[in-house]
Design a protein around this nucleic acid. Structure first.
Lengths: 221, 221
DNA sequence: GTCTATAACTCGATAGAC
DNA sequence: GTCTATCGAGTTATAGAC
């Protein structure tokens, strides 16, 4: 039951995590990380062969943090699975508000910066996205028959991630919560329309719609 | 009626445009731009005081290109305003396919990289986003009564941009069209549900939904 | 494990000839 | 307007003492 290990290695990861989030990977110098972690380059290169290995450790830590740090505080506060999803989106809104829309989603930022040039990082970024999406998918599954039977839960969960990332991007670009709130409002409206089409309302009473246009591809995980 | 001016200044802008799209602003060195534009540093700094001024010229050019280069080929091919919107999204799909999902949206990439640290660039990025969104808004307005009367066209147009950017981000991260197609499919389903609720179908026959949850903010342009 | 000093390199930008 | 040469600062990473 070790408390606050606070090893040099962990201080380096935490410092890099903050700086990569605020400035990006390329724009953050090793010297800056060393200053924030309060150690010297010898220590860093003793723990990590290269700067990129430190990045991978940061992305691993994000994966570990997903459930206990990001989801659990929201999951324990809200019981309704659909409200959990919008509670999660509200968590990003809080983060944007607290930082004046300056930093955005740390994974999304790194995704656009590194996906093309750093395959090892890209793999971990995808794993982070999938963890987030699967947590939302579980909520959609927990909502059971409130959604139409033929709704593709995985695809809708991916869509929620799409809306979050796109909304956060626009909020950052404009330094305003307005485009993020607009996105969440539209998503909520979509959910309302899906829910009013669920079996709870009686599927025979719903008007004719075309809920899925097959585009000939499936999720491959 | 000058044809192909092909000035050094334009070659520099075009070279920078391509490289910033493929690699980002910070990751692209001035030497690389010079090589692609086939000139030397003296010429660049004769045309532009700094590298950042070249970036601003690139972002200005994207603004100018929006209608004649991005929209016009699609607008002239499709007459239905709603199909225009999905034709525009399909244009991004084509781009992703042609580049193996490597590059993504040039404005979105620069938005996440620079919005926080380069205010002049951020202003032009926002103007690019607004130009795109307003073109979509015009389509929604052209669709007239096919949508519910109380639909906020501007907010829905912003949502389309959100979905495009979020979908392109995930496609880049996973190097797969699947998450992009998932996002467009869900957006299409949302549009179908909105359209089946339009006045064309008779507003008195629609079931009770809650189309707008006021969050107490407006677009400020 | 952590320190200091520095190697080896690239960066954006400038100077001055032509 | 375009060239070549280069400055000064910053970069990641290493060497070797302790």
């Amino acid at each position: 039951m070790k408390l606050k290990p606070d090893t040099t290695r962990e201080r380096l990861i935490d410092a890099a995590m903050e700086l990569f989030h605020a400035q990006g990977y390329g724009a953050t110098g090793v010297a800056q990380i060393l200053k924030k972690a309060d150690c010297n380059s010898g220590s860093l290169y003793y723990c990590f062969p290269t700067k990129e290995d430190l990045l991978l450790a940061v992305l691993e830590k994000y994966k570990v943090m997903l459930h206990p740090v990001l989801l659990e505080p929201i999951w324990s506060r809200l019981s309704d699975p659909i409200e959990k999803i919008f509670g999660l989106l509200d968590g990003y809104r809080q983060m944007l508000m607290a930082t004046n829309c300056a930093y955005g989603c740390p994974i999304g930022n790194l995704a656009l910066e590194l996906a093309h040039t750093h395959p090892n990082a890209a793999k971990l970024i995808t794993e982070n996205f999938h963890g987030w999406r699967d947590a939302v998918k579980k909520c959609l599954e927990d909502a059971g028959g409130r959604f139409p039977d033929d709704l593709d839960r995985k695809q809708l969960a991916s869509f929620v991630l799409t809306v979050m990332e796109g909304g956060v991007m626009q909020a950052r670009a404009e330094k305003s919560l307005v485009p993020f709130d607009a996105a969440v409002t539209q998503l909520r409206d979509y959910f309302d329309r899906l829910l009013s089409d669920g079996t709870q309302w009686g599927s025979s009473a719903t008007p004719a719609t075309s809920p899925s246009r097959d585009i000939g591809q499936e999720f491959n995980d």
